[in-house]
Design a protein around this nucleic acid. Structure first.
Length: 789
RNA sequence: GGGCGUAUAGCUCAGUUGGUUAGAGCGUUUCGUUGACAUCGAAAAGGUCUCCCGUUCGAGUCGGGAUACGCCCACCA
């Protein structure tokens, strides 16, 4: 043999070589002038605050990558940009924790500088890993959600909504985090089971009758504005309409009836406190009260209205007031209960309700329209659509988009000091920071005064990431091409951000453009540990992907990631990675075996007339496999595509076909037809594996095929087509199936007799009728001198 | 309380429109292979497809119900 192949495959060296090759040759560059149909991806911009990347990240980012590589080979001009979500609370919280900072004790500019610094480190970490993994994004098309480009698009979107009266400013009760000291949206909440005290407090009516109510929030007692019992509760009929005198404050509140009271819970008497919980807000609409009493300052401390408790935190007050009530004899009993409370997902602090002026986007009035959008997009898998429908149907709040924070996109807005008129920035001036710049107009159009106050709040992080399709499309210069990038073809994302990223993007797209933001949605599950638990830093149940890649190679890790069915979690198993490694090695060996026989000759064209039965069989099955695999990829079922490719490569090609043709390769005059078929089948196998394992397939392509094939990389070569010209009749296939059965029998026979498969036997007796032309074939494959029927 | 998902071999999971004897990988057992590959090959053992009822000539697959687990939402004084 003239080619002396490498004995073993070294993924580390090989993969780095092809990474450099792809970068140098700009294989994944988006061609703005291309005439091909476009396939665009609204890549999820990861939070750069993640300082511990793990297998879960690999899994969720690989899935779009598999599809993208397939589409590229199918003749699409693929637009695959990469964003980094670095603005907003997630980054702020990360910086606060890492440097033990408090946003109130550091200047706005210093804080932002620190965030920007971390942002840079974070995006570098991601970029390095994606490069290592072979993610085929066009790195000339990147954005960060805090950069000027994104800020401008986000602000344009906001101004548009204001003008369309979909965004509005209002003072109303909102959800508040006392740790992060900002307003929140419904989507920012999380449920948490907590143990707490249910305190039974004794009050008296004016008439001196005892009224016992139970509460988990005794600290709100100074803000109590009323009590209610269930209208049918016979026990308390005589209390209704009376006034109760509250302990400590001595305030008097009216006892009313309300359907929402559960007579079976505790004493059946509820006390309502201004903004104590969501239930109060409902109650308030039916029981109008003159003066609401707000006890809480934004930092979660009691104000002057709390009297002696002023300056204490909620929890301190709770403890203190229970002591006081007990000392005064107002406590009947205390029960320990567990209940779930709404907490802020970023810091775990219990949510409080405060009355505050914020910016909102109207969603409650457009539920119907927002639900209708769901039907205009294709969901993979379909059942995930239900999560969106459930979320939209259950919305209780308009989307609060203002955050009392520093590191985010500013609102392009000022207010007239005198009349509070809202002054909007001009679109041509965007992006703008109103705290740094003054409005263009000299006077307030309403009152004529010249004093303007900038909006100091920044936008919710989702208010910007929800325009990611526009941000991504905006990176393209060519106007005609840019227009084709909206709506995006595919939105890949994880299921847990359906209620945030997905929902908010649909909202923005509907209001800004009266359009869907993307056509297809591919939802992934999580990468979880081998026990099925979510991978997290806290549990320590993760491995650094870089270590896995160093040990097994990126192809092997990617191979594990292909195991995920759409929408399902995928358990991490090193065994799965090892299976990938085995597949890589098998490809390497099978490839080198063929190349050794090909030498440097071209077997690109198949001489159809010279095809033998086994050739027709493998080509026929290749066509079947191509059809199935193509179909799976078209439905974003890369996992099923992988199974099918494995099956064809391993069992049809390696275990059988290679064995079938060996005798034709080793004879004195090797059969060129066999080599032609090997060329074709092996090349198609490499192509079908290439979206999943880009490195080994590129290497084998370059080692031999490249000299005869047109494209400089396998990743921009044409996807395999089934051979329609091949005339393989049912009869031929049936005959060959008979031959396979006999081969199986002979193999089983040798195995049962503990004989080597290569051991020649005198004869084999079978009842299976074998077509004449296949008798010789079976004899030479199985090393049998004679077959008797 | 509502919604969604899952339940198939020891383990991890496939099973498309209902159709002979329910599959794969790993693991186990028994062998073989030194001319691509011990990162291989051949074979064996291993399943009342969670349970009940129904539709059907026929159900792992369709319908109804139950149970268990997981996730989401709501309630939570």
């Amino acid at each position: 043999m003239s080619i002396e192949p490498e004995k073993t495959y070294n993924p580390k060296e090989s993969e780095e070589r092809w990474r450099e090759f792809w970068e140098k040759e700009e294989i994944y560059r988006f061609d703005e002038k291309s005439k091909k149909p476009i396939f665009s991806v609204d890549t999820p911009p990861p939070y750069v605050s993640a300082d511990h990347l793990h297998q879960g990240h690999i899994m969720s980012y690989s899935q779009a990558e598999f599809v993208v590589r397939y589409k590229r080979m199918r003749g699409f001009e693929v637009y695959y940009p990469m964003g980094f979500d670095d603005n907003g609370l997630p980054t702020e919280r990360f910086v606060e924790k890492k440097y033990n900072l408090n946003k109130n004790k550091i200047s706005r500019n210093d804080f932002i500088a620190k965030c920007l610094e971390e942002t840079k480190i974070g995006s570098k970490t991601y970029q390095d890993l994606w490069r290592l993994l072979g993610i085929s994004v066009d790195w000339t098309k990147t954005y960060s959600t805090i950069n000027e480009h994104s800020q401008k698009i986000s602000q344009v979107s906001f101004l548009d909504l204001v003008k369309k009266q979909k965004a509005y400013r209002a003072k109303k009760p909102i959800m508040w985090c006392t740790t992060c000291q900002t307003a929140l949206a419904q989507a920012d909440l999380e449920d948490e089971e907590k143990e707490t005290n249910l305190v039974y407090i004794k009050a008296k009516t004016q008439a001196g009758q005892e009224v016992v109510f139970a509460t988990t929030r005794p600290e709100l007692l100074p803000s109590c504005v009323g009590m209610s019992v269930h209208p049918t509760d016979e026990r308390y009929k005589n209390l209704v309409g009376q006034k109760a005198i509250l302990p400590i404050s001595q305030a008097q509140v009216e006892i009313t009836t309300d359907e929402m009271v559960d007579p079976n819970f505790a004493t059946g008497i509820v006390y309502f406190c201004s903004s104590g919980d969501r239930q109060f807000l409902d109650w308030e609409t039916k029981h109008p009260i003159k003066n609401k009493i707000y006890l809480l300052d934004p930092n979660g401390k009691m104000n002057r209205l709390a009297g002696k408790y002023e300056g204490l935190t909620v929890l301190e007050t709770r403890k203190q007031i229970i002591d006081d009530l007990q000392a005064l004899g107002y406590v009947e009993k205390i029960e320990k209960i567990t209940h779930s409370v709404n907490t802020h997902e970023r810091c775990g602090t219990d949510i409080e309700f405060v009355d505050s002026e914020q910016w909102f986007i109207d969603v409650l009035n457009f539920k119907k329209e927002l639900l209708a959008q769901a039907d205009k997009m294709r969901w993979f898998p379909l059942f995930m659509k239900q999560k969106y429908i459930d979320w939209v149907s259950n919305l209780r709040w308009d989307w609060c988009i203002s955050r009392q924070r520093y590191y985010g996109v500013p609102f392009p807005v000022w207010y007239c000091q005198k009349c509070r008129e809202i002054i909007l920035a001009q679109e041509s001036d965007l992006p703008i920071d109103p705290t740094m710049q003054k409005p263009k107009i000299e006077q307030c159009p309403k009152c004529g005064c010249a004093d303007f106050e900038p909006e100091k709040d920044v936008m919710d992080t989702w208010a910007t990431s929800s325009v990611s399709p526009s941000i991504a499309a905006g990176l393209v210069e060519n106007q005609a091409t840019k227009a084709k990038l909206y709506p995006t073809t595919l939105r890949p994302q994880a299921f847990e951000i359906i209620r945030t990223w997905l929902f908010y993007t649909v909202v923005k797209s509907l209001y800004n453009f009266d359009s869907i933001p993307f056509k297809d949605i591919m939802i992934s599950g999580h990468g979880v540990d081998s026990q099925g638990k979510k991978i997290s830093k806290r549990l320590g149940n993760y491995t650094d992907p870089k270590e896995i890649i160093a040990q097994y190679g990126a192809d092997s890790l990617r191979y594990w990631a292909t195991g995920a069915l759409l929408g399902s979690n995928l358990k991490y198993s090193e065994e799965g990675v090892r299976k990938g490694k085995r597949t890589v090695t098998k490809l390497f060996n099978a490839g080198n075996f063929c190349f050794a026989h090909f030498e440097k000759n071209n077997f690109q064209k198949i001489d159809l007339a010279g095809l033998k039965a086994e050739d027709k069989w493998i080509l026929f099955n290749l066509s079947l496999a191509i059809k199935k695999i193509t179909d799976h990829f078209d439905n974003y079922e890369y996992s099923k595509a992988k199974d099918e490719t494995d099956n064809f490569f391993w069992h049809y090609f390696c275990d059988n076909y290679l064995e079938f043709v060996k005798h034709r390769l080793y004879q004195d005059q090797p059969d060129p037809t066999a080599k032609q078929v090997l060329y074709r089948v092996l090349l198609d196998i490499l192509k079908m594996y290439s979206p999943l394992m880009p490195f080994i397939t590129e290497k084998l392509y370059q080692d031999y095929f490249r000299q005869f094939e047109e494209t400089k990389s396998i990743h921009i070569s044409a996807w395999p087509e089934p051979m329609e010209s091949l005339d393989s009749s049912q009869k031929e296939q049936a005959d060959f199936a008979q031959a396979l059965l006999v081969i199986d029998k002979i193999r089983a026979y040798k195995s049962s007799k503990q004989l080597s498969q290569g051991k020649e036997i005198e004869f084999f007796k079978t009842k299976i009728p074998l077509p004449k032309n296949l008798i010789t074939f079976v004899k030479s494959v199985c090393k049998v001198k004679d077959i008797k029927f």
